[in-house]
Amino acid sequence: MQNFINAYSWINIRFLLQGLWVTIEISVASIICSFIIGTFLGIIRYAKIKYLSAIVGFIIDLIRNLPLLLIIFFTYFGLPNIGIKPEIIPAAIMALTVFESSMVAEIVRSGINSIDYGQTEGALANGLTKWQALRLIVLPQAIKNMLPALVSQFISLVKDTSLATIIVLPELMYHAQIIYGQNTNYIIPMFVALAVLYFIVCYSLSLLARYLDRHLA
């Protein structure tokens, strides 16, 4: 019990919260980037543009089927080979964005596919261009359909930030490790704190999604 009281001193809590802040920053940035890029890629894949769609689709499949840890290594250690030398936080955002975009692209593609093609045909018959039909008729419905899958993907993203400890990203998990590494009596209190903090962030995200779902309908 004494361990818990000592472990939750203000200094340690503040250190954890600093880590949590980095986790949130990186999550928000990656969610925004991967939503935009992922939607774009998903549409390209759906659109069946000659060669382009096939190549984009295949790269998405490659990335989707690799562990995120490897994507993190490839980004952080590999990008400098082509002249991009990111700092640790941009590198983490890039790695997460690359990985999550490919997941989002897949969600978007199947979301668009789930909308009856008859609707596009109807829109085309009414004089809309293909792009307008997609933007005005299909996408709004598709986004509503994919909302649950998207949200659970973004919750995964928040949890996945913890893997970036491997490249010494100063996020929540890493800060907890620093604390219990310096005093091993704090292992259990730190894991309890980690579980609670991650749970709060991820669960509020799913509550937000439920709220949006109800009010968008």
Partner: peptide, 17 residues
Amino acid sequence: FVPVTSSTRVPLLKNGN
């Protein structure tokens, strides 16, 4: 100072980070 681990230090040096 950039914190490194035994696994990340050499790639980071080679990449010029």
